[in-house]
Computed example of a mutant assay.
Amino acid sequence: MVPIPDKEDLSVPNDMVAEIVFPSRYRRLARRPRKRRKKNVDEKITVNTNCCGRCGQEGHTRRTCTFFQKEK
């Protein structure tokens, strides 16, 4: 690592010293950005449905499956 020299030793051009930097006009939102792409009419909108791991039928999960009776 190289140490930073003293402020007195730095040489800054005059045009840089006179330059004024303004803050940005807009603030970025603190969430995930929205999708900008519009889907075409022929593109399907998929809806996820529950699928059972035991019997493979849709609409319920393995926990609520009544196809196979629980063995005690």
Results as ranks from 00 to 15, higher is better:
1 M>V: 09
3 P>A: 01
3 P>V: 06
4 I>A: 05
4 I>Q: 11
4 I>D: 05
5 P>H: 02
6 D>I: 03
6 D>A: 15
7 K>G: 00
7 K>L: 12
8 E>N: 15
8 E>W: 07
13 P>E: 00
14 N>Y: 01
16 M>K: 11
19 E>S: 15
20 I>F: 05
21 V>E: 13
21 V>I: 15
22 F>W: 14
22 F>P: 04
23 P>S: 08
23 P>N: 08
24 S>Y: 09
24 S>N: 13
24 S>I: 10
26 Y>C: 12
26 Y>K: 11
27 R>F: 14
28 R>M: 08
30 A>L: 11
32 R>I: 12
32 R>C: 09
34 R>K: 14
35 K>A: 14
37 R>A: 10
39 K>N: 13
40 N>V: 00
41 V>N: 09
46 T>Q: 07
46 T>R: 11
46 T>A: 06
47 V>S: 04
49 T>I: 14
50 N>H: 07
50 N>K: 10
51 C>D: 03
52 C>D: 04
53 G>D: 06
54 R>Y: 09
54 R>T: 09
55 C>M: 05
56 G>P: 08
58 E>S: 06
59 G>L: 02
64 T>K: 05
67 F>M: 01
67 F>C: 06
68 F>R: 03
69 Q>G: 02
70 K>R: 03
71 E>I: 04
71 E>K: 05
72 K>R: 02
